[in-house]
């Protein structure tokens, strides 16, 4: 049985751990507020961009003359998976749930005989994927930044586009975690090249034929890479908010569990202490009786 001193040491260490998790939870909570505001502020641009692009895409007369970023390469042999995760751990199942989704997709693609390439944004996802798929990871981009800017997304998207133009892959999919609420983040896969538009464009979008200034191909040529940047930017922002949310609830749980442990340890400690005192008393009394 552990001595009283051992138990005291253990109790102190549990208390110190609880302090750390509590602090981490509070830091995550304040970061979450900022990240969430940023993610929500970026939504309108991304949504409108998608709307504009889908209505232009629907009016493009000849899909074959359209830029490759819109029409695709006409194959789906080589897939690029862009897996966006966090730089740090201790945020519950946040990283692993994104990686799990990506891994399922990889296995499904491999079973179909496709080639898979992986581009990791964020160190944690790369660490987890490296175990099984290290040969397929072509690059790991680390984003150690305080506030996420559009230029960071540009760095990632320009890499994706450069790979695409060199014919390195046919289909690109983004993996990230959509922020729904503090307790719920949904790992999501989003295909960006070639873009998929949900449903038909809204009210009469198809009937309106646009005038272009300058011409259609110039505009699409500018708009499509930008759309990818915007989607990446959005994914990163959603991810940042999700990460903080996940960390906050994970640390909240940890704090509560530490509290429970402290309670149990204190009870055992006190019981042992009392038992020791009783034992000593009995020894003294029986010693006195023997005289």
């Amino acid at each position: 049985m552990a001595s009283l001193k051992d138990m005291r040491v253990r109790l102190a260490s549990t208390k110190a751990t609880q302090k750390i998790t509590k602090a981490m939870q509070m830091v995550a909570a304040s970061k979450l507020r900022r990240a969430q505001a940023a993610a929500e502020a970026a939504r309108p641009y991304a949504e409108r961009m998608e709307k504009v692009l889908s209505s232009i895409a629907s009016t493009v007369a000849d899909i074959n003359s359209a830029p490759k970023l819109l029409a695709g390469t006409g194959q789906d042999q080589v897939h690029l998976l862009v897996v966006c995760t966090a730089e740090r751990g201790l945020c519950g199942a946040f990283n692993s749930s994104i990686v799990r989704l990506a891994r399922e997709k990889i296995n499904a693609l491999l079973a179909d005989g496709k080639t898979v390439k992986i581009l990791c944004v964020g160190r944690k996802g790369a660490d987890q994927l490296r175990r099984q798929h290290s040969s397929r990871i072509i690059e790991v981009i680390e984003l150690r930044v305080k506030t996420l800017g559009f230029e960071h997304a540009q760095k990632v998207s320009s890499k994706i586009i450069a790979l695409y133009e060199n014919g390195e892959f046919d289909v690109a999919t983004l993996f990230f975690s959509r922020f729904k609420s503090v307790i719920s983040q949904i790992p999501t896969a989003l295909q960006v090249i070639p873009p998929v538009f949900d449903a038909a464009p809204v009210d009469g979008g198809a009937s309106a034929s646009y005038e272009y200034e300058p011409d259609e191909l110039d505009i699409l040529g500018e708009l499509l890479p930008r759309n990818i940047t915007v989607q990446v930017f959005r994914a990163l922002l959603e991810n940042a908010a999700s990460e903080q949310g996940a960390r906050m609830s994970a640390m909240d749980n940890a704090t509560r569990n530490a509290g429970e442990m402290i309670r149990k340890q204190t009870i055992t400690y006190n019981r042992t202490r009392q038992a020791m005192i009783t034992k000593e008393l009995i020894e003294i009394i029986s010693g006195a009786e023997a005289l």
Binding site: A41, A42, P44, E213, F233
Partner: peptide, 25 residues
């Protein structure tokens, strides 16, 4: 009329006229 930048939605509402600096004028 709506104007949005990647960071935020700057303006959204009913307007009379908007003069836009286009690349061709």
């Amino acid at each position: 009329f709506e104007i949005a930048s990647p960071e935020r939605l700057l303006f959204s509402g009913e307007v009379d006229q908007v003069d836009v600096p286009g690349s061709e004028g």
